[in-house]
Nucleic acid binder design. Structure first.
Lengths: 338, 338
DNA sequence: ATTAGCACTCTCACCTGAAGAGTGCTAACT
DNA sequence: AGTTAGCACTCTTCAGGTGAGAGTGCTAAT
């Protein structure tokens, strides 16, 4: 267990390193914090903290930097969260209400807002509509040879697909047909819709229903992620060499981040905000990155993930409350749509 | 006017510099191309080419590199395009048909494919639906207090917006109401729809029609761009310093690229593929970038832009035919949807 | 018109050495 | 016991210097 003094020292080291990105030296600590002990004492404590795995130093004669474990302890016990001030809340909320378009525009905007608020990469995934149901379908004549199927889900998602048409049809006929189908399938989930496809169904209707079923749980789309804030991350001093910067760009490509989130957010339903530091997320190729992640949505239905990805040297005090706040906001707004 | 020999030399310089990113030296040229003249002769010709503004050299004793004008002449008169081979065509077409989702997925995929094909950043804008018309509208009950308006355009775009509902309504009522509205507004453009909003219209219907009109020519959305290929650009040797790389990331942020395209693609309707080299696009802050751009769509209706953005040292021989090819493909596919 | 020859310029990679920062350890002190 | 002064040691960083190499521009000869 950490003595009180060592905990205090660890707090100073972590918060100072987060601020400056420079290894923290014993003398520097004493000077800047007007400590009443000498730097030699601090050095002794450093040595103990290092033995216990909370800090390391890059080479013999550099100051100390936090290890994953150090950050972990800092996040859990030492730091004081910086709450989202009333002004900032208003700003965020205001920006979020700017959007006029559909779900996607909204998610992409959310990523932008969050990225700006924390100065790191923000990721928002589209709600995975587990168990979502069809609200309504509509058929629209496109140009004789094709029909557009539009499906509205009960969580507000709208999906469309183009279907080939055997023969030209008028809109009126299509509407009537859609009407008929709606009576069958409104409120059904993808499994129920597929179950309706039997052999004695006219092939035209079977095509439509199969497509509807696909659209309801189209995972490939649901997986889409919205990402923003690349530039601000790259400006951080840890990427001040070409190699590291290229590596960062490579690592932050959407699909990698997505797989990162899978581990991170799995299992959680509620609004818990989790922090995964360095190696903790299990992907060793991204050991220098931390993730602050939270799921949003309502307990029963759609469930999306919102996260901030940044170097382990991240301002957790700021990031955690902001992710939590935005996540709550998203859940609310999603609830409102339902 | 360029003598034939000088033109040949310019061609070698440009194509070699594009390949290697190294300034081209007189001796190197003679050696690699087994020229029957000496390097001194080449040097004399270099001097002439430089006088006429086709090449420069970064410092006294480096080889020569093409100037904007040199590239321009190369693109217009000297290079031989590398046609898109049958295999490559098949690959691209096959990938493009992978998509199951809507327009946006399709555009985003196109950007990815094109970026991979040319190794630079590819940009695709959503078709600006100038003069697009409403095909069909539908109202869907969401949860008592809100109604979802879904509008399908004649170019296949689907847009939705949530409207507040004065009082709870059943789906059947809403469908009937949508039906009635459809009779009025199907086939109308945004102006016509707005014209229908008069004082003696029930306020509920006025709200819907106003929203429909908005959705038809929602420029803000039409402006959305899909961008891919950042990493491959950053790997090019011109960005081998941190500053240049950061600068590149900054410059390639979507909104800047978008404004670049505005100049580049303006005015053109057909399938012409244009090349803007270095300063030619008028944005001096991006003087080291070239743009290969083409509009796609059909002459009367929707019109989008597809482009490749990369350093002036770009493989124009490959890029131009590939942009042209993908653009044609997009136009076809868009036509098919109409 | 072409070319050999050569002085000149500029870059680049490499080294070197000094300055500085910070630690770890020991021995003395409280 | 814990704390501290002192000091040797390690490692980085940076400026400055140096030599090699690449390439040009020019001149004079062919």
């Amino acid at each position: 267990m950490l003595t009180e003094r060592r905990a205090a020292i660890l707090r100073m080291v972590v918060s100072e390193y987060i601020r400056t990105a420079e290894p923290v030296s014993s003398k520097g600590l004493v000077d800047r914090h007007r400590l009443s002990v000498s730097s030699a004492t601090i050095r002794n404590e450093f040595a103990r903290l290092e033995e216990e795995g909370y800090i390391t130093h890059p080479y013999t004669s550099a100051g100390r930097i936090p290890s994953d474990r150090g950050y972990r302890h800092y996040v859990e016990s030492l730091m004081a969260e910086e709450p989202v001030g009333a002004d900032e809340q208003r700003t965020i909320e205001h920006q979020l209400h700017q959007v006029l378009g559909g779900l996607d525009e909204w998610l992409s905007l959310t990523a932008t807002i969050l990225a700006a608020a924390v100065g790191n990469v923000a990721v928002v995934t589209r709600p995975r509509a587990t168990g979502s149901r069809l609200k309504h379908l509509q058929l629209v004549e496109l140009h004789g040879e094709a029909t557009l199927l539009v499906a509205v889900m009960d969580d507000g998602r709208v999906r469309q697909r183009i279907l080939p048409a055997r023969e030209p049809a008028h809109q009126a006929q299509l509407t009537e047909r859609a009407q008929r189908l709606n009576m069958w399938v409104a409120g059904a989930d993808s499994v129920a819709v597929r179950a309706l496809v039997t052999d004695d169904l006219p092939p035209d209707e079977a095509v439509v229903l199969r497509a509807v079923s696909d659209l309801i749980d189209e995972e490939r789309l649901a997986e889409e992620t919205f990402l923003d804030g690349l530039r601000s991350v790259l400006q951080q001093p840890e990427f001040s060499s070409v190699d590291r910067m290229l590596e960062a760009v490579r690592q932050l490509e959407a699909y990698r981040v997505r797989s990162l989130l899978e581990h991170a957010a799995a299992g959680d339903l509620g609004g818990a905000t989790r922090v995964l530091i360095g190696r903790e997320h299990g992907d060793d190729t991204m050991q220098d990155w931390s993730v602050v992640v939270s799921n949003y949505g309502d307990a029963e239905g759609a469930l999306g993930t919102i996260a901030v990805v940044g170097p382990t040297r991240m301002r957790y005090e700021r990031t955690i409350p902001r992710v939590r706040y935005v996540s709550t906001l998203m859940s609310q707004l999603l609830q409102d749509v339902r």
